[in-house]
Nucleic acid binder design. Structure first.
Length: 431
DNA sequence: AACTCTAGCAACCGCCTGTGT
DNA sequence: GACACAGGCGGTTGCTAGAGT
């Protein structure tokens, strides 16, 4: 904030500061000026807006205002059930690619979708519910298992053959075969039961990960004494699954990666142990993560237990340490990340996973760093490595062992080069 | 009535990519 | 190839209204 940058010319916000551009909420007068400008000159060349319209806004701000609010084709109002379903589908398939999602949702902007999703995630996490309906996650796991993405299939050496291109292609999950079956209404009914923060404080045990494991189970029944405070009393619906899935969709054992498993993990659902297990056991799992383009890890969607360090954290120090992400050790398998026999799992993946949990690692002595063999595989550039020898930003970490441009990343990923690069055969990703 | 908390939303921030010179 | 610029993107922050305490 306030740091002067010159690398983006007149498009940056600091440029706006330099030029004393107006900031903050737009007035209707400003809107009219902008609309008039676009009517006359069309959208684009936003930095010319000030010159032609008299608006004292930077081009970037003008563009955002137009795109998010003034565009005539925008759909206003809250998301419909259908739109919500679509957002869930899209997020499951592409992760936090808001702009791409917006392209699939006419009239909705990336910002709108992002806000909608974040709000929704926040609610669900507070409730201790999975971000995605059970069926979506379970089928993702099944698909991954059918594709051989399991621990048993790993030979411990992870031959190059196993990293063949064909195994790496991850077609987006085609949700058009999915029949949403009251998913939205399911969530609506659940969300009406979201406990308040006060309630969580009053009875934190109800909202600890232990309980969340129960939620994962389709047979989950709500705590009997759970009482909603702010909403009307309605019966907590037994969850029988949000999606009805036809067999034809799920029987595709020869089609790898139909699901974006990582996107499902994006739920950062603490108790999502089965999904977590899949993560560690799958050699190509990183490639499934959140979008092939950037090795993007999920955004930091935290189930906040920090304020209430209860028994869970004392009894499960590791979980407590990693309480903010889904990547806790699976209580079902007792398999730690390091147990994974795959060379891919000998620390690299867990480094990626643990080291990128969304928390900023500021402690140079952090075990998350020292346990990692990630540094054996990547080159930390001076720009991103501080004196302590580690990065402060998870995404930055990833960027520096992934190809630099999105096109590169995409191409590299699609061609399988990504894996080879990751394995150290071609690690010079800088220009 | 005052306070607290949360959801929802708008806007900002910083980084990145594409393009033209 | 280097550089500047315009624009796009995803993450984050801050404000406001409404509901509960």
């Amino acid at each position: 904030m306030g740091k002067v940058r010159h690398d983006s010319g007149g498009s940056g916000d600091d440029f706006a500061i330099d030029k004393n551009f107006h900031k903050g909420p737009w007035t209707s007068a400003e809107d009219q000026l902008l609309i008039a400008y676009v009517d006359k000159h069309g959208d684009g060349n936003w930095n010319a807006v000030q010159k032609h319209s008299g608006l004292s806004r930077c081009g970037k701000s003008c563009r955002l205002r137009w795109v998010n609010h003034l565009r005539p084709d925008l759909k206003k109002g809250s998301f419909t059930d259908k739109e919500e379903q679509r957002v869930i589908e899209l997020h499951a398939s592409m992760g936090n690619k808001w702009a791409r999602m917006a392209a699939e949702l006419p009239g909705r902007t990336d910002n709108e979708i992002k806000n909608f999703w974040n709000t929704r995630v926040k609610r669900l996490q507070r409730l201790g519910l999975p971000i995605y309906p059970d069926e979506v996650r379970e089928q993702a796991l099944n698909a991954a298992a059918q594709n051989g993405h399991n621990t048993d299939s790993l030979d411990g050496h992870h031959s190059q053959e196993s990293l063949e291109l064909d195994c790496l292609e991850i077609p987006e999950f085609d949700f058009k075969y999915l029949q949403l079956n009251g998913c939205s209404s399911f969530y609506q009914s659940l969300l009406s039961s979201v406990p308040t923060g006060n309630q969580m404080r009053q009875n934190p045990a109800l909202f600890q990960p232990n309980n969340i494991y129960n939620v994962i189970d389709s047979s989950y029944q709500p705590p009997p004494n759970r009482k909603r405070v702010r909403e009307s009393e309605t019966a907590f619906p037994p969850y029988t699954g949000g999606y009805a899935v036809s067999d034809q969709v799920w029987n595709y054992p020869s089609t790898p990666g139909q699901f974006n498993v990582a996107a499902l993990q994006d739920s950062h659902f603490l108790g999502d142990a089965t999904t977590t297990t899949t993560t560690y056991s799958s050699p190509s799992e990183p490639l499934l993560h959140g979008g092939a383009e950037k090795l993007e890890l999920p955004s930091f969607q935290c189930f906040d237990t920090q304020d209430e360090p209860g028994d869970w954290e004392t009894q499960h120090p590791m979980q407590a340490l990693e309480s903010d992400n889904t990547l806790v050790m699976s209580p079902l398998t007792d398999q730690t990340p390091s147990d994974c026999p795959s060379s891919f799992c000998d620390g690299l993946l867990e480094s990626v996973v643990y080291g990128s949990s969304g928390e900023k690692q500021t402690d140079p002595d952090s075990p998350l760093l020292h346990q990692s063999s990630l540094l054996d595989h990547i080159e930390i550039t001076p720009a991103t490595a501080n004196t302590a020898g580690h990065n402060s930003n998870a995404e930055t970490d990833l960027v520096h062992f992934a190809p630099t441009s999105s096109n590169e990343r995409r191409t590299s990923f699609e061609s399988g080069d990504w894996i080879r690069q990751l394995l150290g055969e071609d690690r010079d990703y800088t220009k």
